[in-house]
């Protein structure tokens, strides 16, 4: 196995199983789809999970169908076997209007929701682009941070998944680069520092705002909106 074949930093297989089962939250599902696009090793892991799902399906316990099911099905395929579906846009294809660091899956998400990226400054050289939020409080957004920017020790409310799209950063001793997916939760207390050689843009899905260890930062947090 070459270095290029090495699995990038990502969520563990237990989360990949949820991706395959369709039970991951929509935004986390999108993050993984983006990572799979950037890293073929993740795409391969998806394929293995789906093969497991398919194999289980072969022998799983089914449930009774209604007595009209097969008749209705027969009527629906009755006219012809001709292809009736049209595909004007293939999912996962990047739009020409998006910056090159935007993965096709995200581009597709933005296109279908009629959105364009809008950056707003949250101070200290950091910009945020909100993309979506769910009734359960999950948020999806992009964050762009200047080279050398440091985030003091903090934790999270629930899960936070960060997919690095460009640049990189260090969290503790661990280095994250483009294509890595960084997972944290409320049990983790960590700081991070953006690499000096360029800005870092990340796609983030989280369950709520950061919780800072420093009381002063807690006071200032409403100003940042992070």
């Amino acid at each position: 196995m070459t270095e290029a074949d090495k699995m990038p930093i990502t969520v563990d297989e237990a989360w990949l199983a949820m991706q395959s089962a369709g039970t991951l939250s929509p935004y986390k599902q999108l993050l993984l789809a983006c990572q799979a696009e950037l890293r073929p090793e993740v795409r391969q892991a998806f394929a293995i999970s789906d093969q497991v799902g398919g194999a289980i399906l072969e022998s799983a316990k089914g449930t009774d169908l209604s007595d009209t099911f097969m008749q209705r099905l027969s009527e629906r395929i009755a006219p012809a076997s001709a292809q009736t579906t049209t595909e004007s846009h293939r999912p996962g294809m990047q739009s020409a209007n998006d910056p090159e660091w935007v993965p096709g899956a995200l581009s597709d998400f933005l296109r279908r929701s009629g959105q364009r990226l809008k950056w707003r400054s949250v101070g200290a050289g950091v910009q945020q682009s909100r993309i979506a939020s769910s009734p359960s409080g999950e948020r999806l957004y992009l964050l762009k941070a200047r080279p050398g920017f440091a985030v003091p020790k903090h934790s999270h409310r629930g899960q936070e998944w960060t997919l690095v799209l460009t640049g990189g950063y260090k969290s503790g001793a661990q280095q994250f680069v483009a294509g890595d997916l960084h997972q944290e939760d409320e049990t983790c207390l960590h700081d991070l520092r953006i690499d000096d050689d360029g800005p870092c843009i990340s796609l983030i899905a989280d369950d709520g705002k950061l919780t800072f260890a420093n009381p002063l930062l807690k006071l200032l947090q409403p100003l940042f909106g992070l």
Partner: peptide, 19 residues
């Protein structure tokens, strides 16, 4: 069951990219 930021926008999930 998925709400984007703007109320009239519809979010879209995508699956595994083209292989």
């Amino acid at each position: 069951r998925i709400n984007p930021v703007a109320p009239d926008e519809m979010a879209r999930l995508v699956d595994v990219p083209v292989e």
